[in-house]
């Protein structure tokens, strides 16, 4: 998936508060659908639907552990989302550094 498309999908997927809640649960470790739905005000089929969207967005993956299907965060998916801002801050801080050093030089003159 091209980076831009992938980021779009990741943002779309995380635009829903319930999906963000599901995603947050997975960040704590791999979980089955039943474990994710526990304590949430959402039915298991609804959780499955949210997992499907998160998976299509490349944010999570699924692993088969015996009879159980465990969902977990796909580190490369969320990374695409971060990469945007990561690159943005690299450039912006570099520009800030240049401006601060210029200001320091000006003051020393």
């Amino acid at each position: 998936m091209a980076t831009a498309t992938r980021i779009e999908r990741a943002f779309d997927a995380l635009g829903d508060p319930t999906r963000r809640a599901v995603f947050r649960r997975l960040r704590k470790g791999n979980r089955s659908v039943r474990e994710i739905a526990e304590g949430m005000d959402v039915s298991r089929p609804a959780v499955s639907q949210h997992l499907k969207v998160l998976k299509a967005a490349g944010l999570i993956g699924v692993r088969v552990d015996g009879a159980r299907r465990l969902y977990g965060v796909d580190p490369t998916g969320i990374e695409a989302l971060r990469n945007w801002l990561d690159g943005f801050w690299d450039e912006t801080l570099a520009a800030f550094k240049a401006a601060a050093e210029e200001e320091q030089n000006r003051l020393e003159k």
Partner: peptide
């Protein structure tokens, strides 16, 4: 709290 960007984007 970058996950909150999802909401903002929409």
């Amino acid at each position: 709290h970058l996950d909150r960007f999802g909401n903002r984007r929409d």
